[in-house]
Design a protein around this nucleic acid. Sequence first.
RNA 1: GCCCGGAUGGCGGAACUGGUAGACGCGCUGGACUUAAAAUCCAGUGGACAUUUUGUCCUUGGGGGUUCAAGUCCCCCUCCGGGUACCA
Length: 885
Amino acid sequence: MDYNFREIENKWQDYWERDKTWQVEADPALPKYYVLDMFPYPSGAGLHVGHPEGYTATDIVARYKRMKGYNVLHPMGWDAFGLPAEQYAIQTGTHPSITTRRNCDTFRKQIKALGLGYDWNREINTTDPAYYKWTQWIFMKLYNTWFDDQRQKGRPIDELPIPAEIAAAGKKAVREYQNARRLAYYADAQVWWCSHCHIVCANEEVLNDGTHEKCGHIVTRRVLKQWMLRISQYAERLLEGLNSLDWPEGVKDMQRNWIGKSTGAEVEFPVKNHEHKIRVFTTRPDTLFGATYMVLSPEHPLADPLTVPEQKETIRAYLEEASKKSDLDRTDLAREKTGVFTGSYAMNPVNGEKIPIWIADYVLMGYGTGAIMAVPAHDTRDFEFAVKFNLPIRCIMDPMGAAPEEREQILKGKACWTEDGRYIHSADPLSGLDINGLNKDQGIETTIRWLERKQYGRKAVNYKLRDWLFSRQRYWGEPFPVIHWEDGEISLINESELPLVLPELENYQPGEHGESPLANAGDWLEVTGKDGRKGRRETNTMPQWAGSCWYYLRYIDPHNRERIFDPGKEAYWMPVDLYIGGAEHSVLHLLYARFWHKVLYDLGIVSTDEPFRKLFNQGMILAYAYETASGAKVPSNLVEEKDGRFFHTETGEELKQIVAKMSKSLKNVVNPDDVIKNYGADSMRLYEMFMGPLDAAKPWSENGIKGVYHFLNRVYRFFSSPENLYNGEEKNENILKVLHQTIRKVENDIEGLRFNTAVSQMMIFTNACIKKGKVSRDTASAFVRVLSPFAPHVAEELWERLGNPPSVVDAEFPAFNEEYLKEDRFEYPVSFNGKLRFKLELPVDMEENRIREAVLNDERSARWLNGKKPRKIIVVPKRIINVVV
RNA sequence: GCCCGGAUGGCGGAACUGGUAGACGCGCUGGACUUAAAAUCCAGUGGACAUUUUGUCCUUGGGGGUUCAAGUCCCCCUCCGGGUACCA
């Protein structure tokens, strides 16, 4: 008979609910532990098997830490703003809040069915006005903050020093001066527009092929007034902060790449017959002697002024083409370089040489200064361009480490060299700069010093990270607490007016030309100021990232109506000790949240500089799928298995089993509800942990879940049968040893998030008990506690049956005792020349020399020594013996 | 292109700072129980060869190297996954 998981699971889930087991409060007398899941978007499809993986992992850690005496904060909530609910509203007229509530109810029910111990008293929902009141409040803080570059710190806008000439120019000038420095600003932005969704997309939401990640349609460029956040000013802080974090190196690397710091120099090139100067950023100022032309990006402000009359028409056509090209062909794989000559020349500061100025779209306005000096001999892009347009290529570095033939080519300007070497042709008696013979590092340093002395340029740092486009043309998002006045002034609403609640609408359809659905909001839109001035509310809403940027802070004090949270509680619970979620949030969510957190820290609102101390990414759960020899996918319902091989039910063709993402079309989606119905929540939890390492992608297998289900049945059957248990202490040495090994291993594995091996150790223990046939109640009680974070329902039931009062949740996690783990003898593997030949059991405290004797005296050694004397005998205590002959 | 990560039996995966490769689970084979099946229990299970037994050889994607000893460290290569891309 299988154990009745349904009855047991219902019973204990009811108990935890009635008992309010998971409700916690800040308690300075106890050490705290804050364990957080990335909260889900409650989609209409319900929970997916991927969700419970991370949730189970955090639940195990939470339960374990609680048993270790920590006060554990483990909350859950909903990232519920988003497109699907709005799309559904457009189609059916159902208000998104109704859809959202329904979906949250489903998710909550499904999560509870897994026996996850969340404090539901702290549940939050980003779409709840009582929550987004504070999202709006943070936006107001961002608006009222500027970044002090000197102190590398955000400060209140009233502390921004106003230069005398600005102050003298009047209020408007002061306002503009401030607006140009606020962390949230409203400005013309070149944005990606998705004409399918009628929405602007952040750069991050546009895929490599120029399509919108949400809908797959091609996006186009537009200039629109949008809200932006000055995250780029926090680049250095965001980069620096990574060093102190216990995060996967891969995630840190991704963030570093995204921030994209590069050091080099800014150099100014005078233009012949013009007062303009072209400023460029370069990481290779040392190659100035090799600069043979310059390039401006098509959007560069000097593109037009520097065009000579005879070139006007050509340039105009090129600029137009370039602006169109950035729409569609920008991502062409075979991007052949294009460009046109302006007719103007710049002067190379190192040698006074006249070099032509071109315009080309391989130079981007959004990076550096939007202009470059081109050194074709030592930059692959410039090389490609120079070859195509027949521009001179001047090698100024004798390559080190290049093959002789390659070196020949490079010196002749027929190939490009970007590595280190020794400079040649890099001196000019007039300018006084000479770096011939130096290597790259020395060359860069010397050139920068020269540039600074001659005031042609300076050392400079550049970041790829750009400002964050923060508004969307959607209904279902946080409204901005902003009023646009008829005279063009922008102001925030009063804090007392928060939350600014989303108005009810008849029509959720966004406009064709970038108007948000809120433009239909009638009365809501119009405002009249005290002075009689008319204004209009902002009709854009915030992106979905907004709510998820700070939700972990609201869990701390979710019902506080007066403040965002109580500072004492914040100081107690923060930082998050462990944060688990999908790797898809490695860059954006985590970077945005860190940015907001740092601003709040600078303003004294939070007590830590970084929000998430330890981060871990769970891997994706995949499924088996099938394909024919030609690679065509076959839905799983058309596949049959025979003797471990797979065949198409209709054609009979043999199929290959592969691993793929779960998808409706492959018919291999696993529904957690079905799994719970057939095997129970404990099996579901245990299997998700047993599948493999938490961070690995791994395929779901029906047989795998049967394995852990089988294990739980064995556990239940054995430990719930009184005839298998005797009272008091454990008498069997071996059982005691395995028990304590298990306690130690499970403890270490939970701390290291290696749940798969923890489960396997518990299996080893159970096998040993069943083999023995009878163990003590002490042993059973210890094991049940070890098992409880993983399979809490079975554990509660057994705990009760062993005669303990509920609940095992508050029992102490057993401590392992080294005494029981000690071995006095060890079975040494004995190798000859590295090959294992036999085993020899010896006392562990035996001296090495005595061990050598013992090995040589063993009759089995004679065969391998073959009459020779051993050259050397290596003894590694409690590991191995190796005889070298 | 660049930056990460990975490759271990029929399958999912173990293996601490280099020290008995294949833990644990699945599957498979044989057996017990049963009228039978399921469930359960017991035994076996990397490959090849040999065998009455003791056994021998091979094996962690491929090739080199360091070492008494390499899945683990170093160099080169192949394939797979993720990120990113005219970033100057």
